[in-house]
Design a protein around this nucleic acid. Structure first.
Length: 527
RNA sequence: GCCCCCGUCGUCUAGCGGCCUAGGACGCCGCCCUCUCACGGCGGUAGCGGCGGUUCGAAUCCGCUCGGGGGUACCA
C-alpha cells in the first residue's frame, strides 16, 4: 500500500490542542507538536499520498443521522485533501438486515449533497462494496489467522456463554470468554457440556496486546483489553471487526473515521492489522450525537435520529449540513453560517470536540429559517409544492401556480420549516366548502364584529380594482377613518373571517390574492 | 460489576498559563418596528461540577472526587 498519509503527519499538522495530559502516567515525554501553520514537509518521497476515507453504514432501518454526521466530516477532510470517499454497506448482520434501507441511505446522502466516489451503486476499483458480496474475501484471512495461531475454533453455545458472563458479573470480575475451547479438538470439546455443532472463530488475544493508539481528534487514547472476539460467526459471516479491517485494508482506506463508540474495539482492529502484517490506518473517533438526556442519539428518543424526518419536516439539506457541522466543531473564523466548501477548506481534525453534543432542534430551526429566507422565489415555491400537495391543497393548475407565486414571498419569513406552509396557506388554497374559521379565532375576534365586517363588505363590494393597495385603501377608509378604529383592532376580525385564524400572512396582501368574490363571501359568512 | 472516554451559560461553542471582572450563537426575557405572526434592530439573562495541588499568576497543567456517556454480543 506504500506510504499513506499516516498518523503522525496528519496528527502533527494540527494540534496545538490536546497537550500531553491524556498520556498515561509514567515517564513523561514532552509533547513537541508544532502549532498551526507549522506544517511538516510533504510525505516521504515528496509525493503526497491520496487519502481515502469511507463511511460504512449498516442497512438496518431508516438511515441514521449519525451516518450523515460521519459522512460530512469524512468528506470535509477528503475534499480538502483531494482524496476519495467510499461508501460501503456493512450488511453482515442478517438478523437486522432490511432490504430497502440501502437505497434510503443513497437517497439521503445524495439529498444532503454528500457525494461518494465509490460505492455499491457506482462501482469502483475495489468492488464489490457490499460486505455480503465479499464473503469469500474474508475466509483466507480467517485461515491465515488460524494457521498462525492467532485465532481458534470455539464450539460454546450461546447459552453457555451467557451463563459464563452471569457468573463473572456475580463474582465482580471482568467479563470475557474463558477459553474453554482453546487447544481442544472438536472431539475433545464435545465431551464437555454446552457444545454446539458449528464452531465460530475467535481471536486469541495475547496478554500484551497493544491497548493504546493515536487518535486524530483525541491524541493518545487508551482502550480496554479486548475479549477473545468472535471474528467468524457460525453462519459463515464475518463479524464487523474482521470485515472492517479486511475491507479497509483492501480498499486502501487511510483514515478510519467513526463514532466514539468504537474506541473500545479499536485494539481488536489494531491486533488484526498487526497479525495480518498490514499498516494501520489513522483513526479518528468522532463524539457521539446525544439525545436531550445525553444518551447516545436514538430513533426511540429522538425523531431527528431518522434522516428522513428532516425531509418530512421540511428542513433544507444545506441547513442540516451546516447544523451538523456546528455540532462538535467550529470554524477557525468563528463563523457559524457556512457552506460545505467553507468547512472543508479550513477543516482540521483537532478542532473536533471530544464532548458529545446534544442534538438540539432549536438552533437547527433558526438556521433553517436563515437558509429559507435566502432562497430565490422560484426555488422556494418549488420546495413548497410537495408539502401543499401532500396536504391535498395543491393541484398545480395555473390558478394554483399563480397563487403560490404570490404567497411564497408572504410566508418566507414566517416559516422555520417548509411544512409550516400548509397551515399558513390553507386559507388560500382551500375550497370554499372546506374553509372553516378556527374556534380560537372565532371566539377572540368575531364576537361583536358584525358592524365591522358589514362596513367592510360594503366598502369592498364596489371596488373595481382588486390589488393589495386598493384593498388596503378601502379597508382603512372604512374601518379606520370612518369607524375610528385602530388598525390592529380593525384587522383582527377581518383576519379571522377571511383567513380563519388568529395569525396569517399580511392581510391586504392575503385578501388581494384570495380575490374579491371569495373575500366578500367569507366576510358575509362570518356576519 | 468490570473497562474506557468525557466534563465552560438551558443548548452549540471560543478559550491552548497572564489579553478572561470568560467571548459568540441559539433559546429565553424586555424594548423598537408593526395589521396578527414572523423577519429585522437594540438591550438583558445565564457558565468554567467540586476539592486539593503546581505557579508570581489556572477555565487552561497535575491528582482526587463527583457527574455524564460509551463499551462489555455468533449487533453494527
Amino acid at each position: 500500500m506504500g506510504d499513506r498519509l499516516h498518523d503522525t503527519a496528519a496528527w502533527r499538522r494540527h494540534s496545538h490542542r490536546h497537550p500531553c495530559r491524556r498520556r498515561p502516567a509514567g515517564p513523561r515525554q514532552r509533547c513537541h507538536r508544532p502549532g498551526r501553520g507549522d506544517r511538516p514537509a510533504d510525505e516521504p518521497g515528496g509525493q503526497a499520498m491520496t487519502v481515502r476515507l469511507r463511511v460504512a453504514p449498516s442497512p438496518t432501518g431508516d438511515p441514521h443521522v449519525g451516518t450523515a454526521y460521519m459522512s460530512l466530516f469524512n468528506l470535509a477532510f477528503v475534499r480538502q485533501q483531494g482524496g476519495q470517499f467510499v461508501l460501503r454497506i456493512e450488511d453482515t448482520d442478517r438478523a437486522r438486515f432490511q432490504a430497502d434501507s440501502e437505497q434510503q441511505v443513497f437517497d439521503m446522502l445524495a439529498w444532503l449533497g454528500l457525494q461518494w466516489d465509490e460505492g455499491p451503486d457506482k462501482g469502483g476499483p475495489y468492488a464489490p462494496y457490499r460486505q455480503s458480496e465479499r464473503l469469500d474475501t474474508y475466509t483466507p484471512y480467517v485461515e491465515q489467522l488460524l494457521a498462525q495461531g492467532n485465532a481458534y475454533h470455539c464450539w460454546c453455545t450461546p447459552a453457555r456463554l451467557q451463563q459464563m458472563r452471569e457468573d463473572q458479573q456475580a463474582r465482580k470480575v471482568p467479563t470475557g470468554y474463558d477459553r474453554l475451547c482453546v487447544g481442544k479438538t472438536r472431539e475433545q470439546r464435545a465431551e464437555l457440556p454446552g457444545c454446539s455443532d458449528v464452531p465460530v472463530v475467535r481471536m486469541l488475544v495475547p496478554d500484551d496486546a497493544p491497548l493504546s493508539f493515536v487518535d486524530l481528534i483525541r491524541g493518545q487514547v487508551n482502550a480496554p483489553r479486548p475479549d477473545d472476539q468472535v471474528i467468524l460467526k457460525a453462519d459463515g459471516f464475518p463479524t464487523y471487526h474482521l470485515a472492517v479491517v479486511v475491507d479497509d485494508h483492501l480498499m486502501g482506506i487511510t483514515h478510519v473515521v467513526r463514532g466514539e463508540e468504537w474506541i473500545s474495539s479499536t485494539p481488536k482492529h489494531v491486533l488484526l492489522y498487526d497479525w495480518l502484517g498490514w499498516e494501520r490506518p489513522a483513526f479518528a473517533h468522532m463524539p457521539l450525537l446525544r439525545n436531550v438526556d445525553k444518551s447516545k442519539i436514538s430513533k426511540r428518543k429522538n425523531p431527528a435520529a431518522r434522516l428522513t424526518w428532516f425531509v418530512e419536516q421540511g428542513y433544507l439539506p444545506e441547513a442540516l449540513l451546516n447544523f451538523l457541522g456546528l455540532l462538535g466543531y467550529s470554524l477557525p473564523s468563528g463563523e457559524e453560517i457556512f457552506s460545505f466548501a467553507e468547512m472543508s477548506a479550513s477543516f482540521d481534525w483537532t478542532r473536533v470536540n471530544t464532548v458529545g453534543p446534544v442534538f438540539d432542534l432549536d438552533k437547527l430551526g433558526w438556521l433553517n429559517g436563515h437558509y429559507l429566507r435566502a432562497l430565490a422565489p422560484e426555488d422556494l415555491q418549488a420546495r413548497l409544492i410537495p408539502f401543499l400537495r401532500a396536504a391535498g391543497l395543491y393541484d398545480d393548475s395555473a390558478a394554483h401556480r399563480s397563487l403560490l407565486a404570490g404567497a411564497g414571498p408572504l410566508i418566507q419569513t414566517r416559516m422555520a420549516v417548509l411544512s409550516e406552509c400548509v397551515d399558513l396557506l390553507r386559507f388560500l388554497f382551500v375550497t370554499d366548502r372546506e374553509f372553516v374559521v378556527q374556534d380560537a379565532a372565532r371566539e377572540k375576534s368575531l364576537g361583536d364584529a358584525g358592524p365591522v365586517l358589514l362596513a367592510l363588505a360594503e366598502a369592498l363590494a364596489p371596488l373595481e380594482e382588486w390589488t393589495t393597495a386598493s384593498v388596503q385603501t378601502a379597508m382603512d377608509a372604512a374601518l379606520i377613518d370612518r369607524l375610528g378604529l385602530k388598525r390592529g383592532k380593525a384587522y383582527a376580525p377581518v383576519r379571522a373571517a377571511v383567513c380563519g385564524s388568529l395569525i396569517s400572512p399580511p392581510l391586504p396582501e392575503s385578501m388581494a390574492l384570495l380575490g374579491q368574490q371569495r373575500v366578500l363571501a367569507r366576510l358575509r359568512a362570518a356576519l
